[in-house]
Design a protein around this nucleic acid. Structure first.
Length: 245
DNA sequence: GCGACAG
DNA sequence: ATCTTGTCGC
């Protein structure tokens, strides 16, 4: 798929805030038009990883058949973060390399599962919203920890959930994807509802806490996960001295 | 003012 | 994110 970063890509925090404020009104939330046939899981690995703009990054995209969760496509890209880590602006570190990886894809996924927040963001425009606007595809955010908001403890079983509220508004849902595990934070990105987002995350995580695409464990049964892929891409780039973009 | 803060 | 041993629990 052919993609393009916005022309006014920011170089500082004020510029980044302006980009978020400008793009936020473009987000649309509605039910998915049809059950997605393919899901793409996205992840980024860091080297250095201390939050500086110079950190080396590698992105991986794994596209799965939504029904069988089998891999149908994959892509990776390496580069430099180019932006320091600031809570609320972390999309500016990951978007360039994620877009580069998405461009390598032979197929166009029906839904993008992003590692981080969507709506549950100080300016209501987390990574998942941003990537949705850039791609025009349905997106959702699955985060391992919330960025903001308050909620009640969800029930103990898989599928139990509790709304996350911030400023009187429901911005996410704490969702238990397996019995007894710590809940994940699910929020809408673009072209999806919170109900649909939670249903998709639950369906994509039949075995572990995180979706099959984002599992931070070595592939147990030969299933490649985005996290594993991008680490390998970073290591391969180091070995051959590939120039950073 | 103080603390918290996706990856 | 990343650095990392042992350890608690099913």
């Amino acid at each position: 798929m052919r993609l393009q970063l916005t022309p006014d890509w920011p170089s500082d925090q004020d510029g980044a805030h302006r980009v978020q404020e400008r793009l936020r009104p473009l987000v649309r939330n509605r039910p998915l038009p049809a059950p997605p046939r393919t899901l793409a899981g996205l992840d980024v690995a860091y080297e250095g990883g201390h939050g500086s703009a110079e950190d080396r990054v590698a992105a991986a995209v794994v596209v799965l058949d939504a029904r069988t969760l089998e891999v149908v496509d994959r892509a990776t890209a390496v580069g430099t973060a180019g932006f320091p880590y600031v809570p609320g602006l972390f999309a500016f570190r990951e978007l360039p390399v994620l877009v580069a990886a998405l461009e390598q894809l032979a197929t166009t996924p029906d839904l993008l599962l992003c590692d981080g927040q969507g709506l549950a963001h100080p300016r209501r425009f987390g990574l998942a919203c941003h990537l949705g606007v850039l791609t025009g595809l349905p997106t959702l955010g699955v985060a391992k920890t919330p960025l903001l908001g308050s909620w009640d403890e969800p029930g103990p079983f898989r599928g139990d959930s509790a709304d996350v509220r911030d400023g009187g508004e429901v911005v996410a849902r704490m969702l238990r994807t397996q019995d007894g595990v710590k809940p994940v934070t699910v929020s809408t990105g673009h072209l999806i509802t919170l109900d649909d987002a939670c249903a998709q995350v639950l369906a994509a995580a039949p075995r572990y806490r995180l979706p099959e695409t984002t599992l931070p464990q070595p592939s147990a049964g030969g299933t490649p996960f985005a996290d594993r892929l991008c680490r390998d891409a970073l290591a391969a780039a180091d070995r051959s001295g590939v120039p950073l973009s």
